[in-house]
């Protein structure tokens, strides 16, 4: 199976029934995408498949031939932060941090579709991402902040 992950092509020979999450983590070795529930309930594994936010635990390798995948590693790096990541840092969002990759992937997708989201737009887009530390107030602030910066850019 041939996938593009963050612009890099990968030929993956694993069981086609393997969820993308585990292909990314255990086969390709990109561990920024997290396992939380395995059944699409918590959003920790959110990636973009052909631009759409997708729970990578619930889509299998066999359905992804030729797909363009973007993971948190493709959004930005510590040396080259994306605007959304800078907003996350400036708002000091993360606590334990485990859900944050998924949160950021959902936020990126929201801001791609809705340039100036309202609180209820944010609620609707982020409802599928669970955070047990309760970082929600700062997630909301960081998304508003990023939207402003992207508008100004």
């Amino acid at each position: 199976m041939r996938l593009s992950v963050n612009g890099t092509p990968h030929d993956v020979s694993a069981d086609p029934g393997t969820p993308l999450l585990w292909v990314l983590r255990d086969v390709i070795g990109l561990t920024g995408t997290k396992y939380g529930c395995g059944v699409g309930l918590c959003g920790a594994c959110t990636v973009h498949v052909n631009g759409q936010p997708t729970r990578s635990c619930s889509i299998t390798l066999g359905d992804l031939d030729g797909a363009q995948i973007t993971t948190i590693e493709g959004i930005g790096t510590p040396e080259h932060l994306a605007v959304i990541q800078q907003a996350w840092i400036d708002n000091q969002v993360a606590q334990c941090g485990y859900c944050q990759s998924g949160q950021i992937m959902s936020a990126v997708a929201l801001l791609a579709a809705t340039k100036t989201p309202t609180d209820s737009d944010i609620d609707a887009a982020m409802d599928g991402n669970l955070c047990r530390c309760g970082t929600y107030p700062r997630i909301r602030a960081a998304i508003h902040d990023a939207a402003k910066r992207l508008q100004g850019a």
Binding site: K34, I72, P78, W88, A94
Partner: peptide, 29 residues
């Protein structure tokens, strides 16, 4: 003072290593 957390950049970029992210040569799962 409110200091920038030392773990914040890693946690905003997916590079913070949790236990589940431990990877070693020849590792089995």
């Amino acid at each position: 003072k409110s200091l920038p957390r030392l773990d914040m950049v890693a946690k905003a970029t997916g590079t913070a290593a949790f236990g589940i992210d431990t990877r070693l040569p020849g590792m089995l799962f």
